[in-house]
């Protein structure tokens, strides 16, 4: 079972799309709100080298933005 973290902000539609995709495919994940969680924000920027949301960490593999083909590939869907 993959270890997945989603870095998101509450008003971000792309973040919502990512989470909808994960929920539809019954994939468990930890959702970190970088609007309120400064440590998570710094972690996201460090891991992804950029400041846009969403960012996904899938067992150490970083996916930036809503990238359905990449998600399907990494999650073997």
């Amino acid at each position: 079972m993959a270890n997945i973290t989603v870095y998101s902000t509450p008003t971000c539609p792309w973040c919502k799309k990512v989470k909808m995709f994960l929920d539809t495919n019954k994939v468990a994940y930890k959702d970190l709100n970088v609007a309120s969680d400064v440590a998570a924000r710094k972690e996201m920027v460090k891991k992804s080298g950029q400041m846009g949301v969403p960012v996904l960490d899938i067992d150490g593999q970083i996916v930036i933005g809503y990238d359905e083909p990449k998600l399907k590939e990494l999650l073997k869907i």
Partner: peptide
């Protein structure tokens, strides 16, 4: 782009708190 330049304020604004 993505490293400070954003086209989606409702997505990214909180990152710049």
């Amino acid at each position: 782009r993505g490293k400070g330049v954003s086209y989606c304020a409702i997505c990214d604004a909180p990152v710049f708190t």
